[in-house]
Design a protein around this nucleic acid. Sequence first.
RNA 1: GCGCCCGUAGCUCAAUGGAUAGAGCGUCAGCCUCCGGAGCUGAAGGUUACAGGUUCGAUUCCUGUCGGGCGCACCA
Length: 584
Amino acid sequence: MPGAWTLVWSELRAAVAAALDAAGFATPERLARLDFAIPRDPSHGDWTTNFCMLVAKEAGQSPRAIADAIVKHFPADHPMIGAVEVAGAGFLNFRYRDSFTASLPARILAAGEAFGRSDFGAGEKIIVEFVSANPTGPMNIVSARAAAVGAAIVSVLNAAGWQAASEFYVNDAGNQVDLLGASLKARFRARIGEDGTLPEGGYQGEYLATLAAELPEAEARAALASDDAAWWRAQALERMIAWQQRDLARYGVTFDRWFRESELHLSGAVDETKRALDQRGVTYLSVKPLGVSEAAQARVDSEEGASAGDAPATWLKTHDQGDDMDRVIVRADGRPTYLLPDIAYHRDKRDRGFRRAINLWGPDHHAYVTTLTSALKALGLEDDFLKVQIVQYVKLMQGDEEVKMSKRLGQFETLADLVEEVGSDCARFFFLQLSSNAHLKFDMEKAKERSDKNPAFYVQYAHARCCSLARKGAERGLTAETGDSAPLTAAEEVALVRKLSTFPEVVRGAAAAREPHRVPTYLMELSAELHRYYHNCPVLKAEPAVARHRLRVHDAARQVLSNGLALMGVSAPERLDREEEAEA
RNA sequence: GCGCCCGUAGCUCAAUGGAUAGAGCGUCAGCCUCCGGAGCUGAAGGUUACAGGUUCGAUUCCUGUCGGGCGCACCA
C-alpha cells in the first residue's frame, strides 16, 4: 500500500528486539527499556538509542559488548537502515539508507493528509474534558487557553491512534445558576423601568443586560408576575450556554458532547454512586472527619465553621487513598456536595467505555486533584484512570500593565474580544506554543501587531510560500517530479527532508505525553529549515529535472505544514495578504 | 503552617535522564537585476535561582534553602 506510513520507531524497535532475541539477550524487563529518539545533532545519525547503557549494569556487561551484539544481529539488508554505529559512551546510532531518504518526499505525498497519523495508541478510548467553565458568564481568556490546548490534545491523540472524545461539563445544578437567574431577572426589571437591584452576590457583568434585552418580553413579564424563578433560571442557563458555544465555535473549538450535571441527578446516577460507595464500605456518618492527616488535623480543630452544628454528614474515606483528609459527600441537611456528582460523572465516563480520562483544570482547582483522584480510587476505578492536567493562568498584559480579571465584577477580557482583536489563528498558535502548566504572559499589544513579531505568521508564511511556488511552477509548465526520486544532494535539502520525516514521531510523542506544544515547536523548526532550503536552492531557475525534484520536496513540506497546523486548529492559507500592499 | 506549580539569554519561552542547553523578540553587522524580504546569513548575550544527593551521564529525578504564583469550606 503506497499510502501507508509505518512509524520508523515501530520498525526500528521490532528490528532491534529481534536482534536482541537472536543474541539471546532479550528479556521482558530489558525490552521494556528499549526506546529510540531522534538525535539533535545530525552527525549522530537519524535515530539513536541509549539502551546499552541502561541495561549494562543489570546485565553485567559493558555497553559496548551489548551494542556489538546488536550490530552483529541487525539485518544487513534492512530496507530503511543502512548503518548501525556504536558511539560515545555506548549510544547506538542508526542511519537511513540514501535510497530511503531520497524516497521520503514521495512517501510523504503518498500518505498525504494521513502523514503523521499512526496506530500507536492502539485504539484505546480516552475522554478529554476541558474548559468546563461555569455557565455564569462568557468565555474568558483562561478558557481560551484551555480550549486551544484541549482541542489540540484530542487532535494529536486521534492522530496517533487513540480514540479520543472531547467533552464540556456544564455545572448547571448548583445554586450559582439560581443566582444567575435572579441576576438576569434584575437586569430585565431595570430594562422595563422597575427596581433592578441585583441580588446579594449577584453577577454584575454587562452581558446579563445584553441577555435581558434579548428575552421575549411578554413571556418575561409573565414570569415576573408569577414570580417564576425556574423560568429565569432556565432562560439564563440556556442563553449563557448558547453564548459559550457560539464563542467557542468562532474560535474553531467544538465538543463531542456537552454533558450536564443535571443529567446525573435526573438519571439517579448520583444516588446510585452514593449506594455504590456505601456498599464498598468507604463512607460513614459523622460530625467530624475520622481520617485526617496530622497537618489537616489542626485545621479541623480550629475551624468550627466547617461543620453545620452537630448534625452528622456523610463522609468519604479519601484519606486512605492519599487525600489529606476525608471529605463530605452528603451534607448534614441531606444535599450532596459537589464531590458526589463529580464522582458520579467520572463513574459515568468509565461506564461509557473510556479507559482513561484527562481533565484540564485551572490552577484554582489544583487542591481538588488529590481529592477527586482519591475518591475515584475509593470507588474502585483504576489508579491511572483519571489524569488531571493544570492549565495555568494567563497573565493578560497591556504593555507593562497587568489587566485584572474578575468574572463577578464583570471585568475581563473575553474570548470573543481576543478572537476579534488577534484572530483565532494567532491566539491558538500563541497558546499552544507553551507547555500548558507554565504561566503565560499574553501581551495584547504585541499579539495584536500584524507584523513579523507574530510567530504564527512565520509558519503560515512558509506554507503560503510553498503554495506560491507550485503556482508559479505551473505557470511555467513545471510540475512536481513523480516516480523515482533523484538522490538528495544539497545539505539544506537533506536537513529539510530529514526534518519532514520526523513529523509522525513528533505527533506520537505529543500524544503520549499529552503535550501539544511540541507541534508548534516542531513547525517553527521545520519552517526555518524550509526557508534555508528555499534561499539556497533555487527551484524555478534550475534546470527542469532539478526544478521538478525541488518542487516535490517543497510540496512534501507544504503537506507536513498543513497537517501540523491542522492538528493545532490553525488555518494553512495558500496566500497571505501583505500588509504593505493592503495599505498601499 | 501544609500542599501544588514555576524559576533556563535583556524579554517571552523550548529542550522522552543523553552527546557542544536551543528558538523567537530586542540589540549590532550584512543580503532583494532573483521563485513572496512576514525571509535569509553572521555577531553579541548562560555558573540552567542556590547548596547537596542519586549514576556512566542531571536543565530534567530526590532533599533542603531562597524567590514568584496559586490553593487549603458541609462553595463549584
